[in-house]
Design a protein around this nucleic acid. Structure first.
Lengths: 124, 124
DNA sequence: CTTGCCTTTGACGTTAACGTCAACTTTTAC
DNA sequence: GTAAAAGTTGACGTTAACGTCAAAGGCAAG
C-alpha cells in the first residue's frame, strides 16, 4: 500500500505517517522511484499508535511497547513497564471519573436553576 | 495569602498561578508594595482548574466554566456546553477503558510467556 | 538597618505531534 | 505522451502550559 491509502485507512494524515516512521514507530520499503510502500498490517499498527497516544503515552514509550504488543513477548522489565502504564491509566481514569461526577453535579444545579422562572428562588 | 502559600497549598508553581491570572482564571488584589494577595478560596479554585486541565479542557473553556462551577448558575447555551464537555469526557473514558483492556490482554500474554521456561512452547 | 527570603515584571526556552508551504519527482489515467 | 494526482525531502510554523533565568524591589527578624 502507498502512503495515502494507509493514511485514509487508518484515519491519519500522511504527515503523521512520515512522522511515525521518523520516530521508528512504523517502517516501510520503497518503490524503485523512492515512494514508501507499506504492508497492510501497518494500518492496525497505526491504530494502536493512536490508541496509545490517546492514552497519554509518549512516542518514546510507544516505540518500546509496540514489539511486545504484536508478539506478546516481553522481558520482566518490560512487563513491569506495562503494568506501570496500565496502573497509571487506571489512576487517570479514576481522576476523570471524579471530575466527571463533579461536573455532573454542577450541571444538575445549573439545569435546576434554568428550569425555574426568574423570581422563584426565595421561597415564593 | 501570598502567592507562595497558595502555590504550595494547591500544589502548583508560582509561575502557574501568574499564568492563570494572565488567562483570567484567577484574580488577586495587591499589597501596597505591589505583591499579589489571594483570598483562601483561591486554593479550591486552582484545584478545580487542575481537574479541568487534566480532563482535557483548554484554559479558554475553563475560563467560561468557572463562574458557573462556583455559582451553579448557567444560561441555556452554557448548559449545552457543559453537557457537551461531559459527553466528551464520557467518550474519552470509554476509549481509555478499551485501550486499557487491550493493554491488559497484551500483559496477560506477556506474563504467561514469562512464566514458561525457554523451550516449553511447542507442546512439550 | 541589614540580612535573607519572597515576589515582580519581562522575556526567551521547551516539548510533542503534527500543519503547512515549497520545489520537485513518480505514478496513474486517458 | 501528457496532464493531473500523489509522493518526496527539507524546513519553518503552531499551540499550550508552564520552566527558567535576570535584574530589581518588598518584607519580617534581629
Amino acid at each position: 500500500m502507498r502512503i495515502g491509502e494507509v493514511a485514509s485507512a487508518a484515519g491519519v494524515s500522511t504527515r503523521a505517517l512520515r512522522y511515525y516512521e521518523q520516530q521508528q514507530l512504523i517502517a516501510s520499503s520503497r518503490s524503485t522511484g523512492g515512494q514508501r510502500l507499506y504492508t497492510p498490517d501497518t494500518v492496525e499498527r497505526v491504530r494502536w499508535i493512536q490508541l496509545l497516544y490517546a492514552a497519554g503515552l509518549s512516542s518514546r514509550t510507544i516505540v518500546e511497547f509496540l514489539p511486545c504488543v504484536h508478539t506478546g513477548i516481553a522481558g520482566l522489565e518490560m512487563i513491569a513497564r506495562l503494568r506501570a502504564e496500565r496502573d497509571r491509566l487506571d489512576d487517570h481514569m479514576r481522576d476523570l471519573a471524579a471530575t466527571r461526577a463533579r461536573l455532573d453535579s454542577v450541571l444538575a444545579a445549573a439545569e435546576f436553576g434554568a428550569t425555574r422562572p426568574a423570581g422563584e428562588a426565595a421561597g415564593v
